[in-house]
Design a protein around this nucleic acid. Sequence first.
DNA 1: AATAGCACTCTAAGTGTTAGAGTGCTAATT
DNA 2: AATTAGCACTCTAACACTTAGAGTGCTATT
Lengths: 346, 346
Amino acid sequence: MKHVDIEQRQKKILCAIVESYIEIAMPVGSRAVSQRFRKSISPATIRNVMADLEEKELIMHPYTSAGRIPTDKGYRMYVDLLLEPKHLTKEEESLITRLINRGCEDFETLMQAVSKAICMMTDVAGIVLTPRLKRSVFKQVEFIPIDSSRILAVLITNSGLVKSAILEMEEEFTKSELLRISEFLNHELDGMFLGEIKDYLTRRLLEQGDSFYTFLKKAMYIFSIPGLLKMEDRIYFEGTTSIMACPEFKDIAKARLFLRLFEEKRDLMELFNEDMETDGIKVHIGKENSHKSIQDYTIITSNYKINDRVMGAIGAIGPTRMEYGRVMSAVSYLSSILGKVMEELG
Amino acid sequence: MKHVDIEQRQKKILCAIVESYIEIAMPVGSRAVSQRFRKSISPATIRNVMADLEEKELIMHPYTSAGRIPTDKGYRMYVDLLLEPKHLTKEEESLITRLINRGCEDFETLMQAVSKAICMMTDVAGIVLTPRLKRSVFKQVEFIPIDSSRILAVLITNSGLVKSAILEMEEEFTKSELLRISEFLNHELDGMFLGEIKDYLTRRLLEQGDSFYTFLKKAMYIFSIPGLLKMEDRIYFEGTTSIMACPEFKDIAKARLFLRLFEEKRDLMELFNEDMETDGIKVHIGKENSHKSIQDYTIITSNYKINDRVMGAIGAIGPTRMEYGRVMSAVSYLSSILGKVMEELG
DNA sequence: AATAGCACTCTAAGTGTTAGAGTGCTAATT
DNA sequence: AATTAGCACTCTAACACTTAGAGTGCTATT
């Protein structure tokens, strides 16, 4: 069928336009595309096809007589249908592995290493979310008396995350009392998600009566004090500075808007939180993003799992004009490796 | 004496030029200065004085017929002799206090709140160094067994800093053994600077002989494992984005260089570490800085003390054209208040 | 259906031109 | 002797104008 052929060619040309634009960051003319096909198609023909593509809103004109640039919709088609995955080379993978392992002793440096690795491999900014506390599984809690009114509570999760908080106590607890409470909690909460604990204890409190009640209440009091279970989710990022070399940021106002994303992390957080729920690589191109602060950029995310449990997410963000294949591969590879490293570390 | 009068006037005019330039960020002409003095001095006279100031390298010409801008040396003179301190108003101080107190429950948010406060009050970037671990005083250490090969060590300092590390043990320790070790250490190291501990234990090890030796060796082994005493000194900052609104950063390359300072923190760290040793407000103007990466900016620092001990430093960084009086007051006030808040928190 | 040819469009870069802000010098004034 | 007014001169920033060339869209041709 002729019709299929035409569609085929349109796709080929769209692909060429997108990739050319990604390379040179300037509107792509018919001439350039023709050369890309070693002149097997003439500029004039290309122009006709371009007009079609423009009608379909896959590419656009900045002004009458400039070359074309892809629209968000064009990028979308490219990513979904035309892009061939650009796997990292073995050398790159081993480079990453070395980078990650060097920083893996300590939680913080691991996060930093991963975000740095993303930006190194892709030239866009790397983002890493810490494992979400509420998705972690309770393992152990200990109470260390500091002085008469203060206790240091230490919470250890399944995945090796340690969270400590100094609790200001109104009533005094004896050492043996604390020990009993921690033993009780360690037995009772074993294997439970941190997110569930508060509800669980409240329920227990309502069911139970009499003498045990006071004890349980104390246990709950000590545990639910703000601080220990306060879900703090940090975000690490790297490469925001080097990405400003992109022509997209030649205007300083644009650059500031981009940087503000990381100072005012809310929008990013929200997006990552949503994405975390589904597996696999997710690509959000420009206006597809619901937050308008992100609508000039493309974000690529992937969740990571520790022991087959979704715990967090990593991603990359940059101008819509980015090397999709490469970034997707890098994010994908790093998310898988991050999970593994954390399992060992946990 | 006439001579004194002339010097006086030169100073007054330098002061006017500096302050005017700080205000409007454009070369200051003789006309503008004259107006600043309500025309009590004519532009022509001002011009003569300006020529003198230029000879002394306190101000300079961007080109033949532009106004003058202060040199680093000019700013220096302004700061040392001419500047009148611009104390924060009561309202501003109480605003700061509220900001700080709201975030003071948690160490991290406290640091963030302080750096944010600096940048809010001054429109330059705020920098806060965490209390240096090695200057902290040992208070208590506890060991919590996680599984057969791993122990969670929790270190509490005088100032309320809590540092934990998971120790991978080669040999197994019994619970009672761990208890003995922690009791021993708690007794032995009480009130000691963390920086001294390693040396102290080594010395003890050499002095002591026989049966106690093994025990001590174990104690030392467990304590000196990388992680627990690893001195990590973090740096918090805020306002790097909003400062880019300054005309100084209209060139994106300049902006990138500035931002890189915070990504590659080494130079900043070094400067802060030196400054920490001496009390009071320190002002480093432009080329006075030894690191050339900082030579376009002014940094103002102050150390802060917890219980009369120098523990860390805070500061502000921005273009040499900044409101010196205000920034100095803000840094000064915040450093004093930070110490106090930390004492309470500790 | 594909292409060559051509007139047309629009930008980016270069070139003058000009207004005006500011200086430096000299002569006049206090 | 110190200050100021006056004036010629300098330099920039802004604007208008021109132009080369890249690229298009259309039409006629293959």
